[in-house]
């Protein structure tokens, strides 16, 4: 088997293991919908146009960044990564399997949230902007996966994983046009949020949802997200660890 086939096969095993824990799988998909319902109840039905793309962003960030940082840290502590390191499987092929599965879940979540928005809140899926949306989703999923792997290198052990991961992701979601609209935010906070990747992902998805037929590629946003992806890859290469740290 060549290495690429091994990586794809690894996605299959990750996927199989994922669905064998039905409560975990179920809440992975229901969690974002729950937020969507609550926000729409709190802010009224007119907010659905904002929250449909926003919750897609939330779902993708959670499925890639949060999920990978936590599960990879746990796998490292359990010695799963060290065992893989002693086999001929190239490290990148193993991680590609984990990332591939995370991206798969992110796309599935996107479809579910978009369908929920269309069916329940009549927020039409922006079909004409689909190619651009897929590109934004792909670049973002890759970038947030890389950042998640990089973060795992800074988490000392699996007990610390939830605290560290949430502390890095939740505040960013709050200042990035995902949970709360940033139109009344002070200028300095707006500037800070524009330095981070989630804001650009959210603004890009929002623009594509609102664009209709004249959808153009959001180059600036894509550029910032990709730059953060590169930072993630470099940091992961430098700090990622295959050995448990105790």
């Amino acid at each position: 088997m060549n290495d690429l086939a091994l990586a794809v096969r690894q996605i299959g095993y990750e996927n199989r293991a994922f669905w064998r824990n039905p409560p975990a799988a179920f809440f992975t998909f229901v969690f974002p919908l729950l937020f969507m319902v609550i926000f729409n109840v709190l802010f009224g039905a007119e907010a659905a146009a904002f929250f449909t793309p926003a919750i897609i962003v939330f779902g993708v960030v959670t499925a890639t960044y949060t999920n990978l940082a936590m599960t990879v840290t746990i796998a490292r502590d359990d010695g799963i990564l060290k065992r893989i390191r002693g086999t001929p499987l190239p490290g990148w092929a193993y991680l590609a399997g984990r990332i591939g599965h995370a991206v798969l879940i992110a796309f599935l979540l996107t479809v579910i949230v978009a369908a929920f928005g269309a069916l329940v809140y009549a927020i039409d899926v922006p079909w004409s902007a689909l190619p651009a949306a897929l590109l934004v989703l792909a670049v973002s999923a890759a970038a947030f996966s890389a950042l998640g792997l990089a973060l795992s290198g800074f988490i000392p052990n699996s007990d610390a994983a939830p605290a560290v991961v949430n502390a890095t992701v939740l505040p960013v979601l709050f200042i990035s046009n995902v949970f709360i609209q940033m139109e009344n935010a002070p200028a300095w906070l707006d500037t800070v949020s524009h330095l981070l990747p989630v804001r650009h992902f959210a603004d890009a998805m929002m623009a594509l949802y609102a664009s209709g037929a004249d959808a153009s590629l959001p180059w600036t946003e894509l550029g910032v997200i990709a730059l953060w992806g590169v930072i993630g890859v470099v940091a992961a290469l430098r700090f990622f660890s295959w050995e448990p740290r105790r």
């Binding site: 994922f18 796998a75 359990d78 799963i80 065992r83 002693g86």
Partner: peptide
């Protein structure tokens, strides 16, 4: 080479 480490894990759901 085959390796049995002192502490290792495998995916428990497989």
């Amino acid at each position: 080479v085959g390796i049995v480490l002192q502490q290792t894990g495998v995916d428990g759901y497989l």
